[in-house]
Every structure is written in structure tokens, then in C-alpha cells.
């Protein structure tokens, strides 16, 4: 017991001597928020991204490494709308970090800053993995990203007031470049308007709403329920009446179901990056949308 106490004291002393790291420790729940934090925080923040584009954000475990990282986070940037309901509560209760608790400025949720789509009229688990606040995959509409960026930069300014002007300037510059990019994307993606498509999971709904694509079905029979053969053949029958031009899936989805359907419906199957890092081209938020549009354009001809 005495030895353990001695060890603790030594360890505490050693830790106290560690030099202070970057001003703001940001932990991003998903890669898109890591990329946005980088745009807004520049070199005044150090960023740890909890998940990769190849991981299904609904099914993340509260791994020991995530608890360790959450312990030192000054700001947690997450989607909210219950996307992280399976792991975030554990990081909050197990990390011993008062800054990232619900209601603290160090816990930032993106979803409350935007208009949500697909808010279920009725809530019942028989409907699959539905989210009471609506579809949480908000970042695939760049206009949402603009709103979230404004709120996030203000949050950074609150948490790190000494650098507030720096964050605001970065936010302004980002917004200018972003608005130009939106205009460019909307022009480029004009041929996508009305494009009928089949999705894997409803994680592209905001993109679809933004550019006016038309979703005619999803490979999952219900949100979060993996594709079944009976559902796929039903979907194939439906495509005979209302044809789709493309089947899309995100980088983290299994390819088999989409390829099965694409082959039989004689339409292409396209992998969209869904988030930063989901393809070699999608290196940041700008190239994420560049690449997504570039991958879909050939199917609209």
C-alpha cells in the first residue's frame, strides 16, 4: 500500500513536469469533424480522430485508447443525435474528464446546429436503428458544414479565448473558400439532379437532398439491419418498375450486397468516400465533396 502511494506520488510529479502541449486538445469523434477542426484550429489545436472512414460510426467500441485520449481532451467534437450513443457515454463516465461532460462547452455536437432530415414520426425499435432527433449523417450537405463551422469556431474561441481572433479569422477564410466551393459543386453536380439511386444505409440523405438526387431504395431493409436476400430480391423487383442508375455504398460498408444488386439490375456500383479518408482522393472536406461528385457524375450520363 505504502509503495503504491509512493509510486503514485512519483508518477504525479513526473506528469506535472511534462511541458504543456498545444493550447487546445481536440478529440474528434469522426474524421469529418477532425478535418473541420483542422480547418478552423490550424496549428493552435492538436487533433486526435477517434474513428476512421473504414469504421462504421454506429458500431464503435469504447476502446481503452479512446478513454485514454478522452481523459486529456479539452474539446470533444461529435455528431450527436445519438450517433455515438454506444460509446460516448462510456468515454464521459470512464475518462475522469469533467470538461467533456454533457452541457459543458468542451462537448460539442454538430447535429443541433442544422435542420435535421428524416425525423421519425413514431419511435419504435421495430423500425430499425432510427434516431429520435433525425438522420445524424449531417456533414454530407456542405451547407450544414458551413453552419457547424461557424458554431465550432465560436466554441473554440470560448475555450481558448487568447486565440479567439485567430479562430474567427480562420473561420472567415474557411467560410469564403467553402461558399465558393459550394457554388462550384452545385454547378458541377447539376447533371446529378433527379438521378435515381439505391443507397446502402441512409448515410447520404443530406447529400441527396442537397443536390436533388432521388433515392429509390436502400440495401438495408431497415436502418442498421444488414441486407437480407429476401429484401434484395424485393428491391430488384422494384427496380424493374422504378429503375435506378447507380447503387452506392460508403467505404465502411460490405461490398457484396451492392454488387449483387448492381450486377442483376445492370447498373454500376459506386463506392463513395462518405467521410474524409474514405478514398485516396478525399483528403480533406473540400476533396471529400470533389471526389463524391466526381464518382457519381459518370453514372448520370
Amino acid at each position: 500500500m505504502k509503495n503504491i502511494l509512493k509510486l503514485l506520488t512519483l508518477l504525479g510529479g513526473w506528469l506535472a513536469m511534462q511541458p504543456a502541449l498545444a493550447a487546445l486538445n481536440v478529440m474528434a469523434c469522426e474524421p469529418e469533424w477532425g478535418a473541420l477542426s483542422r480547418e478552423l484550429g490550424g496549428d493552435k489545436v492538436s487533433i486526435y480522430v477517434a474513428t476512421t472512414a473504414l469504421q462504421d460510426p454506429h458500431h464503435i467500441e469504447a476502446r481503452p485508447s479512446l478513454i485514454a485520449r478522452a481523459r486529456s481532451a479539452d474539446l470533444m467534437v461529435c455528431t450527436g443525435a445519438e450517433l455515438e450513443v454506444g460509446w460516448m457515454p462510456l468515454l464521459q463516465t470512464q475518462s475522469g474528464n469533467p470538461k467533456i461532460q454533457l452541457g459543458q462547452p468542451g462537448y460539442f455536437e454538430a447535429a443541433p446546429n442544422v435542420l435535421m432530415l428524416e425525423i421519425p414520426a413514431r419511435l419504435d425499435r421495430s423500425m430499425g436503428d432510427v434516431h429520435p432527433q433525425g438522420n445524424p449523417h449531417v456533414h454530407m450537405d456542405p451547407r450544414n458544414v458551413a453552419k457547424i463551422a461557424a458554431a465550432l469556431s465560436e466554441r473554440m474561441a470560448v475555450l481558448d479565448p487568447a486565440e479567439a481572433e485567430y479562430y474567427r479569422a480562420r473561420a472567415k477564410s474557411f467560410n469564403e473558400r467553402w461558399q465558393q466551393a459550394i457554388a462550384r459543386w452545385e454547378k458541377e453536380a447539376a447533371p446529378l439532379k433527379g438521378l435515381p439511386l439505391v443507397v446502402y444505409h441512409k448515410d447520404m440523405s443530406y447529400f441527396i437532398a442537397w443536390l436533388g438526387l432521388r433515392e429509390v431504395g436502400s440495401l438495408e431493409p431497415k436502418p442498421g439491419v444488414p441486407p437480407t436476400t429476401s429484401h434484395l430480391s424485393e428491391l430488384l423487383d422494384r427496380l424493374a418498375k422504378t429503375p435506378a442508375k447507380v447503387v452506392i455504398r460508403s467505404a465502411y460498408n460490405d461490398p457484396r450486397a451492392g454488387e449483387w444488386l448492381a450486377e442483376r439490375a445492370k447498373i454500376p456500383s459506386v463506392v463513395v468516400p462518405y467521410t474524409v479518408g474514405g478514398s485516396d482522393q478525399a483528403k480533406d472536406l473540400f476533396s471529400l465533396f470533389d471526389d463524391t461528385i466526381a464518382r457519381l457524375l459518370p453514372t448520370a450520363k
Partner: peptide, 10 residues
């Protein structure tokens, strides 16, 4: 319980 401020969970 105490969690150390390290990247390794302690």
C-alpha cells in the same frame, strides 16, 4: 479511480 493523462490507458 484515476486515469493517467497518457495516450496509453493507465
Amino acid at each position: 479511480k484515476w486515469v493517467a493523462p497518457t495516450d496509453l490507458l493507465i
